[in-house]
């Protein structure tokens, strides 16, 4: 398959099951809602060492938030429910509770509930107050700028992590430009995040390593400087590869994010140095969810 001169590999991205939640952070104005969300989603690029993968899903208008203020919705993904709950609580406590004027709400419905402000309330040292409003429990925790309002729990849902595609270009600058174009449109899709810095990862990994202590190591088949000494997947003209990783609440959301992202890259055309689109395919070792590039782009 070739789109606008860009070759789409006959391959697939492998992804794996995760647990996820959505939360809504509101604040006095959009600036402070974003600051709080950025703090909460910091150091959350990969479950390999961060404990979770998190990102800003989208900016919310006052009409879309529970308290009628400006807000941001955040998605957090982890490999299991316990890990998710731990990361959520830690990050909410250290990054949202501490952020001026913030309030914190559940952003997703589901049967399985995990603590959001349920345990943060103890920061109130006995002065915290509970309110049960329209069937939902909230905690009002007195803080120095007024009150921190948080919903007691949020829902944990099944999700998918590790959807991805690779952009293979003739230069580093061209690969970066293409990825930036892809990320811009992918951020319009609801239910997905691209957790790496700016949505792009330059150090894609393979499963395993020659070093026993490491569970992942550099994806040497796509490293341009190793073309001559490894089982390379790169043709001679390709000098840079960048990857976009997608975590999503549903397979449909990831499909759509990959489709619009790949299309945005292809729209730039082969004339801009974009040669191929490929995907992280690890022979079935990584996960049960397969995203076939050519099926997605049909």
């Amino acid at each position: 398959m070739i789109i606008n001169g860009v070759s789409i590999d006959d391959t697939f991205a492998e992804a794996f099951p995760m647990k996820a939640t959505r939360i809504i952070i509101t604040a006095h104005n959009p600036k402070w809602a974003m600051i709080s969300a950025q703090a909460m989603t910091g150091f959350a690029t990969s479950v390999i060492a961060c404990g979770c993968e998190a990102g800003i899903e989208r900016i919310l208008t006052p009409n879309e938030t529970p308290d009628g203020r400006d807000g941001v919705s955040v998605l957090i993904f982890a490999m299991g429910g316990k890990g998710l709950a731990k990361q959520l609580e830690t990050r909410a406590g250290q990054c949202v509770l501490t952020s001026p004027t913030s309030a914190l709400f559940a952003g997703i419905e589901g049967e399985k509930q995990i603590p959001l402000g349920k345990n943060l309330r103890y920061f109130g040292d006995g002065f915290q107050t509970s309110k049960l409003i329209a069937g939902k429990r909230y905690w009002r925790i007195p803080v120095m700028d007024g009150e921190f309002l948080t919903e007691a729990t949020t829902a944990q849902v099944g999700a998918i992590g590790g959807g991805n595609f690779l952009v293979l270009a003739e230069s580093q600058a061209q690969a970066l430009t293409a990825c930036e174009a892809a990320i811009e449109v992918m951020r319009t899709i609801t239910g997905v995040i691209m957790p790496f810095p700016g949505g792009v990862v330059r150090s894609g990994s393979k499963v395993g390593s020659k070093y026993k202590a490491l569970m992942a190591s550099t994806n040497d088949a796509f490293c341009p400087t190793l073309k001559g000494i490894t089982n390379t997947q790169l043709s001679p003209e390709i000098e840079s590869v960048m990857e976009i990783v997608i975590d999503g609440l549903t397979k449909t959301a990831i499909d759509e994010a990959m489709r619009v992202g790949i299309q945005a890259v292809c729209d730039l055309g082969a004339d801009t140095g974009i040669q191929r689109i490929s995907a992280g395919n690890y022979g079935g070792k990584l996960g049960p969810h397969h995203f076939h590039l050519r099926e997605i782009m049909q």
Binding site: D67, A103, K131, I133, A134, Y138, R140, G146, L149
Partner: peptide
């Protein structure tokens, strides 16, 4: 004070 929970 201005209390956020009153809006809810």
């Amino acid at each position: 004070h201005t209390l956020a929970f009153l809006a809810l």
